[in-house]
Amino acid sequence: MSAPTKQEPFRLGFLTAIEVPEKGYVGGLLVTTHHGRPLEFQCTLPVKANPTQEILYGPTLGPFILGELIGGALVDKAGIKPHLVLTDQEQILELRAHVNSPVAFVQADGSEPGKKRVQAVAATGELRLGRQMLRFHAAHAEDVEKISVESARFPDDADLSEPFVRVREALQEALKVGGLR
């Protein structure tokens, strides 16, 4: 994914999934500007592993379904490609092995009053963006530097966890309305 120009908005993809009893996982990807304004939303139909697959994949089933299958499909089919994919589910970090965009796990709100923005820490694969600390895929340490260049676009009080609330609400709404059958 090529870096955006200064005039071009930096596009964020907020990727998360919810588990629906007896149906499996439903994933959603909300692509927004760096101000949080939505550009595109996409969600999957439920994806469920059968018992054999659960046995077959064992502990790797979660990262496989969430990261590779759901995340991969959503990013692949996105009409507007995000410059950075953010997720609040650690298992989705696996997606990085299958897409070209940097993928980061948004850790809990680590904001401390008066604390200055921390510079990129490539060694630990972490970067503070707004109120949150991001953790990047261990095998892609270069992502940290790549994104830290864009970090100036984000105000210190930017809340990167908020859009996940929107995505989950949208998924619940889609399930309720019956749009994901």
């Binding site: 996409q42 139909l45 994806v47």
Partner: peptide, 17 residues
Amino acid sequence: RPQWPSVKTVKICFPQG
């Protein structure tokens, strides 16, 4: 490698402001 059925998606686009 094991093959899974392709994941179907639903998309909405937001109008350009």
